[in-house]
Design a protein around this nucleic acid. Structure first.
Lengths: 116, 116
DNA sequence: CCCCTAAGTATCTTTTTGTATACTATACCA
DNA sequence: TGGTATAGTATACAAAAAGATACTTAGGGG
């Protein structure tokens, strides 16, 4: 597909990735596989239950992740990437690579300020 | 740099790209080069002056774009990508590619619903 | 009986984003 | 003398995202 501003598919990917916690959730699921709700929560101190639930629901609604509920008490719910979700990996990779360089640059800039 | 959730540089790129109009602005500047404020505004019917100004300022603060003011009346201000900004191109490409496939998929899904 | 756990809901408040509208400066043109 | 154009700022307001806190459900352990 042609890549013009009028025809901006960038927004679609952006729409899925935007959310304070979504990238982190996706990286966890991509790299560490299936995770329970409580495991994700423990990994992200600072997130509230409501927020985690909301982000997971949104990702599930987009078919990026899969939610499996076990009928037991206390509840057990597992989340994992769908095949479709895994197709986002190149995007996350590109962002990560850019971010890594960006971080280096920020450090250099901060350095310049200090030594001036 | 290692790619782990704890070390999430994805957010940096995301932080720069998020904003209702930023991806479109960047695609315009990347693909069509230097643009005046009013040209960008005309290209994006629906954006308010305040919003366009704000998005441009934020991109400028991140050194993604460059702002050149000509001392004349009526005012003339030109915006263009910085070299650093151009380094975002792979990210935008990855997102665009994904978005293009995603669009196709959405169409197929809508189709399934109709034929069921 | 009461408390614990896991994975949530339900409300309410705050913060962040975005929209709408009006206003400014100043050279040039008729 | 008054209108036009450009690139804004100021102010008020609406909507969306995020955060804080309390409540729920039901089985198992003490």
């Amino acid at each position: 597909m042609e890549k013009t501003p009028e025809n901006c598919q960038v927004e679609d990917a952006l729409g899925i990735l935007v959310g304070k916690w979504k990238p982190v959730i996706l990286l966890y699921l991509l790299q560490e596989g299936t995770k329970r709700f409580s495991e994700l929560k423990r990994k992200m101190p600072g997130i509230t239950q409501k927020m985690l639930t909301k982000q997971l629901r949104e990702l599930e609604d987009e078919d990026i992740i899969q939610r499996v509920v076990y009928a037991q008490v206390p509840p057990k719910v597992e989340y994992s990437m769908t095949d479709y979700g895994r197709s986002l990996e190149p995007v996350l990779d590109a962002m990560h690579d850019w971010g890594a360089k960006h971080t280096v640059r920020k450090v250099l800039k901060a350095d310049q300020v200090k030594s001036s």
